[in-house]
Design a protein around this nucleic acid. Structure first.
Length: 447
RNA sequence: AGGGGCGUCGCCAAGCCGGUAAGGCACAGGACUUUGACUCCUGCAUUCGUCGGUUCGAAUCCGGCCGCCCCUGCCA
């Protein structure tokens, strides 16, 4: 950059200006009125060269002088009103230490660096559109770049219910609203990775969202759709009972253990199967039982039947309660003829629920992540509000005593599964005993 | 106010050297289902910010207006 600056000085296209920051601001004019030329604008090439050299060597204090491009103080584009190219900074240079005291401005260094790196299309976001004429000015007036780099702008990605700017993300981390840059609720790549999002699902999301110049905010549902779509074909199904209640199969022998074979992916026969132990004492999810069922409730209810996935059809016989009224245990009877199919009498059982043998189930911690904010568009909140006012208090629910099927114990950190009827989960890489919910399954059932 | 951009379905987004509105997400029905998942059908802009002009014909060309974003750092 330095050599090219010398070149521009020699061409009479750059000059050392002694205006103070305040003066320069005043000379710049306003959006509607032209600026005035600096009194130092027409120094000789020799003087400019000498002063620039001495700026570099640290002879002048910070803020005393700048190297400026000689363009047009009356330009309607403020960036072209003799922008600073170099300013003095008395800070240690990464290689020259305190012997080097000048540093180039972004607008000057950017096109040069692009050219040196062989960049032909320099992509950036919309707010740099006004800088493009200056980018081109540098490229054209240095005139030495073989493929001349070109700057092309496009709109940055925004997603509903989250923030994307570094400034905001930084605040979330530093104020402790999240556990760090890789907190699985963050939209950072390291967080998405920890959450369980695959690179391919993110690529697919970005591809479908598209690239354009309109400021926009993409529905988070599109991102979720992309990871569900991928994991539906690749994630092995497993059973986890997040909020367990005890179920006793009254007509099943106390000391018997049967193994049922469940598909790893019902949509993909090649995915194989795994064995799941069945005993008299089971766990099912609290959500799958209702003492007073809402309409169209296809799960366990008084007098009703459900299919235990991959096993028997079961009928609720009795609800045992604790003294405080809470449910202690559900007692059901199994139709032992339905192990491999439907009942001979042709009756239809609508619901299928997941279950685990109490004796065999392992315990795990499960992190249920939800949207970090309650407001879809954080760029659109009232003036007197801060974006942190909209943080979702329920963005994380920790379950410490979830029951998981035994086979999950042999999985590795980073492995992804579909917890059947619940969602997609990823074994955490930082805390291997926990599973992160990547995304829920779609659920068309409305209470 | 001067300049630079942008405005097509709830959210994205093709189309834009004129020929009569792709696709995805979301949503709503239905089929299938030992995941209320998946899959599969079906529906979802007579209209392209708006007004007017040119034309046999305009989202596409022309003009006015409206709305939103960016620009007055020796930040990036």
């Amino acid at each position: 950059c330095y050599e090219y600056a010398i070149l521009l000085i020699k061409k009479g296209l750059a000059y050392v200006c002694d205006l103070s920051p305040e003066e320069m601001n005043e000379y710049r004019g306003t959006l509607t009125t032209p600026g005035r030329e600096s009194p130092w604008r027409n120094r000789s090439v020799e003087e400019n060269l000498d002063l620039f050299e001495r700026m570099k060597n640290g002879e002048f204090p910070e803020g005393s002088r700048t190297l400026r491009a000689k363009i047009d103080m009356a330009s309607p584009n403020m960036n072209l009103r003799d922008p600073a190219l170099y300013r003095i900074k008395h800070m240690p240079h990464y290689r020259q230490g305190y012997k080097w005291c000048i540093y180039p401005m972004y607008d000057y260094a950017h096109p040069i660096q692009d050219a040196m790196e062989g960049i032909t299309y320099s992509l950036c976001s919309l707010e740099f559109e006004n800088n493009r004429p200056l980018y081109n000015w540098v490229v054209e007036n240095i005139g030495l770049f073989k493929p001349e780099p070109r700057q092309i702008e496009f709109a940055r990605l925004n997603i509903t219910y989250t923030v994307m700017s570094k400034r905001y993300l930084r605040k979330l981390v530093f104020e402790g609203h999240v556990d760090g840059w890789d907190d699985p609720r963050m939209p950072t790549l390291c967080a998405l990775r920890r959450r369980g999002y695959t690179p391919s699902s993110i690529f697919e999301f970005v591809r479908r969202a598209g690239i354009a110049k309109a400021n926009s905010i993409v529905d988070i549902e599109l991102l979720e759709h992309c990871i569900r779509e991928e994991l539906n074909t690749t994630a092995p199904r497993r059973i986890a009972v997040l909020d367990p209640i005890k179920v006793t199969v009254v007509n099943y022998p106390e000391d018997k253990t049967e193994y049922f074979s469940l598909p790893n992916n019902p949509g993909d026969p090649n995915a194989g199967t795994r064995e799941l132990p069945f005993t008299r004492e089971l766990y099912i999810d609290r959500d799958d039982f209702a003492e007073v069922p809402p309409p169209k409730f296809h799960r366990l209810k008084p007098g009703g039947e459900v299919r235990l996935m991959g096993a028997y059809i079961v009928k609720l016989e009795e609800t045992v309660k604790n003294p405080d009224g809470s449910i202690a245990e559900l007692r059901v009877s199994a139709d032992l003829e339905t192990r491999d199919g439907n009942p001979a009498d042709g009756r239809k059982v609508k619901g299928t629920i997941h279950w685990l043998s109490a004796k065999h189930a392992a315990t795990a911690t499960v992190m249920l992540y939800d949207k970090l904010f309650t407001e879809p568009n954080l760029n659109n909140i009232p003036e007197d509000k801060d974006f942190t006012d909209y943080i979702n208090p329920d963005s994380l629910k920790v379950i410490t005593d979830a029951k998981i099927e035994p086979s999950l114990a042999g999985s590795n950190p980073g492995d992804r599964f579909q917890f059947v009827r619940t969602g997609y989960f990823c074994r955490d890489t930082k805390n291997p005993d926990t599973f992160n919910r990547i995304v829920t399954l779609k659920d068309s059932y409305k209470f």
